[in-house]
Design a protein around this nucleic acid. Structure first.
Lengths: 263, 263
DNA sequence: CGTTCCCTTGAGTAGTTTCAATACTTGTGG
DNA sequence: CCACAAGTATTGAAACTACTCAAGGGAACG
């Protein structure tokens, strides 16, 4: 894909290079990319299971996920349910810029690294940059779109299909930000975590994964996912990437796409 | 509540008076409220079942819901699933301002009325008003918060509790925008629609509603919901309004709240 | 080399779906 | 005013999906 003499976005912009990659990053000017990169102050490393933000607490800064994965989770009497997963390039709690507090916990899945930016700084920069503002706004709405899709899937699909959908989505999103690999994906996920994501017990998740394995759709073993036929996985999980608003899945003519990206 | 000589927000601002009522509307200046009200151009009436926006189509304007209800729905082979419901005061497809197209359909539930504003106009106004921008941004993130809560509930609760939660949330949101009533709520919802919202069959929804009726928790008959003990309904549906970011549920000291609202 | 976490399997139970059939409501036309 | 149609609500029985309780196996880490 990338010719060797062209430096990758993540080399040019170590903290923010994967932000909106494959979505509308191409509509960011070089100045905007630099502005975004330079906004980022300290970075912070988290260990597995470490909580970055606790629900309800007031926040005056947001974080860009640079490396690793994070989970949106919500505790309740007798367990925790996992709402969503973040991959590098996600501006994970940018919504706190408008919300001031989150309604969920952000927990590191495996070791991860985030870069921080204060809301004060953000406000200063954005007051002068309506286009960048609109793109940041866009990025926070992607989460909502992912939530909506997940609601549909919870309502329609049964356990094995739900995991298949999670696998397909995760893989697709990793591809978008330049982290996809060929026949397998390595994550710190366990069967119990997948169960929490799908709203089933870990025992049932185990059987669902066994089903996918026997059917030759996907083989998940100790955090590594092996898939031979990806479109088969996607079909089984009823995965249609339109909701991810990637540049490819937009189904728009080039001219229209150009309008969309630049307006 | 309101003294008679004080005119209600919805009288002062017929199109936008319920927007963010009970949330952070109080942080809008009179100028901002007027600016918002005057942005609105034509209004449009919809009949039951009419589609306002179809998924995927490009949009260059957004709508404020002035009267009635709207549903976010997604069709798929063999049925439609309902993602969420909107009440008056919701800026129902403001997210299209950043997204350019929606990933779901917007369908009128019963007759409804919306007021329209073009994205061009919106962009022109917002370029000069960072505070208003941030509040509009905030309002689009409320939908995401509602989605997240619903994901948790789908993962944790069974059918009867799910409807209870829907009833409790709907009632709470109607209260916020000044449309709540005492012991009953009238909606154009049917058992089949509730079933689509909860991801169960309409037959099972019928039995779940029967259960709520026998237990004396809620009585839903042909669109009207009768509830004697509201906190009992909320407890049964595990409803906690924190995710709705209302001014009351913020759990913050007054001083802090003031900061949150004005920053 | 044992502890701990993660995964696997079996049997019985609860929640939900399917198929099938029967009423109740509301609106319409005769 | 009644008959009828269409949509909505209700009920029963059998099949399926997922949950609970209980026990055992495997891999990783000190």
């Amino acid at each position: 894909m990338l010719k060797s003499h062209i430096r990758a976005e993540w080399d040019l912009y170590p903290n923010t290079g994967r932000f909106l990659l494959g979505r509308r990053r191409s509509s960011l000017t070089v100045e905007e990319r630099c502005s975004l990169e330079q906004m980022m102050g300290d970075s912070r490393a988290l260990v597995d299971g470490e909580t970055l933000v606790r629900r309800g607490e007031l926040i005056d800064r947001s974080c860009m996920l640079v490396e690793g994965f994070m989970l949106q989770s919500a505790e309740h009497d007798g367990g925790r349910s996992i709402i969503s997963i973040h991959v590098p390039g996600d501006f994970i709690d940018l919504n706190a810029y408008a919300l001031k507090r989150l309604d969920y916990d952000l927990v590191s899945l495996g070791p991860s690294k985030v870069a921080l930016v204060s809301h004060e700084r953000l406000a200063r920069e954005l007051a002068q940059q309506p286009h960048l503002t609109r793109l940041l706004w866009f990025s926070t709405l992607l989460d909502a779109a992912i939530h909506r899709e997940w609601i549909c899937k919870l309502e329609q699909l049964q356990a094995a299909q739900r995991v298949a959908h999670i696998f397909a989505e995760l893989w697709y999103r990793l591809d978008l930000v330049g982290l996809g690999s060929a026949g397998s994906v390595r994550t710190p996920l366990t069967q119990a975590l997948l169960a929490s994501m799908c709203g089933v017990t870990s025992i049932h998740m185990n059987r669902a994964l066994g089903h996918l394995r026997r059917e030759g759709i996907a083989d998940f073993r100790r955090g590594t996912l092996y898939v031979e036929n990806r479109s088969r996985l996607e079909a089984y999980g009823a995965f249609n990437p339109a909701y991810l608003y990637s540049d490819e899945s937009s189904n728009l003519s080039e001219a229209t796409l150009h309008d969309v990206l630049t307006v």
